[in-house]
Design a protein around this nucleic acid. Structure first.
Lengths: 182, 182
DNA sequence: AGTAACATGTAATGGGTTACATGATTCG
DNA sequence: CGAATCATGTAACCCATTACATGTTACT
């Protein structure tokens, strides 16, 4: 039940159409809550039916024509309620760790090339986050809103840093295991 | 499509019944791939229908009676195939980060108590992982299988370490923001 | 007029979650 | 024999994913 609130947040930052939201989810918010355009359209329909958002008065809706939404007071209230409500952290769920566990039983053949690929992907993501940090958060110029957004970006940077370090370590282990076998 | 392979891995480590698997998913494998008993029973049925596992010959199945499964050669082959197959990492999806982003728009009221609660939960999880590490992986006594399993545990430890550090930092930021306001 | 890109939407499938149902075993 | 616990299973709902469908705008 987080997608509607992700959309409310995005719409409060800037009223948008479904496709514009989709594009913004591919950057920014999508870095920690991704969504496809199908999910977004369905959710926009529900949010409008629930009276939390409305189409901008200027435009009239028609299929194939742009339709922009803005958040109503009830929507802002619901987002504030949700933000403050306690929620348990979700247990970790990671396919790569599962594959490593499986490899302990059926062997590591073929796994190291994918580890290298993942390492490369995480390095790229890390570089992207760091570029955003340099661009959007120069030192000592943060408003309160910026400090919160910077904090979120920091989590992304630290997580990608963790993965690059862990994958580097894993590849070293793999090399030692192969050397011991061969 | 990872749950069947998580089950195959668990069954290769030790043939088990549905409820035994459920208990083991609450520890060990469930630390990075959780599942409920309903998921497990449904999946066991499919795996048996697909000829990847079978009930242990000794026992005959009846509702309410224990039914243990073991992996067939085809199941081991499928697990090896899946382990070696390339898979993209899933994008991050984290509610807490989303709530922080929302808080930048609707305010941080009520959030810090939940941050403290999360910090406590992550500290406990970290302590649990570290206890497992001390118990199961004494220094310099690792077989190849143990080194892989240790590597997976290391990921868990490093991730929980990241969260405790990040949450500590976040709470400090919150304190400064409140001080600036009040 | 044709076509590419933009924009919104529907349908089908499958996994995850929650609630509920039912049989077997154990113990007082 | 009654209750608690163990063990397996069914049903309904929701969300995510994939593939597909349809209309509009801009450009040549």
């Amino acid at each position: 039940m987080s997608l509607p609130h992700a959309i409310l947040t995005a719409l409060l930052e800037k009223p948008s159409s479904g496709l514009e939201l989709t594009r913004r989810f591919d950057r920014s918010i999508g870095y920690f809550w991704s969504a496809t355009h199908q999910q977004i359209y369905r959710e926009l329909g529900r949010l409008e039916a629930d009276g939390l958002i409305r189409t901008l008065p200027a435009e009239q809706p028609a299929r194939g024509q742009k339709k922009s939404y803005e958040v109503l007071p009830a929507g802002r209230a619901e987002l504030a309620r949700w933000t403050a409500a306690s929620q348990d952290p979700k247990p970790l769920r990671d396919v790569l760790l599962l594959r490593l566990r499986a490899a302990a039983v059926v062997g590591t053949a073929g796994l190291d090339s994918d580890l290298r690929r993942h390492l490369d992907l995480h390095r790229r993501q890390l570089a992207e986050y760091e570029a955003i940090e340099r661009r959007d958060f120069p030192p000592d110029r943060d408003s309160p809103e910026d400090r919160l957004r910077h904090l979120v970006l920091r989590a992304g940077i630290d997580l990608e840093t963790f993965w690059t370090q862990w994958l580097t370590h894993a590849l070293k282990e793999f090399a030692e295991l192969s050397a011991a076998e061969g």
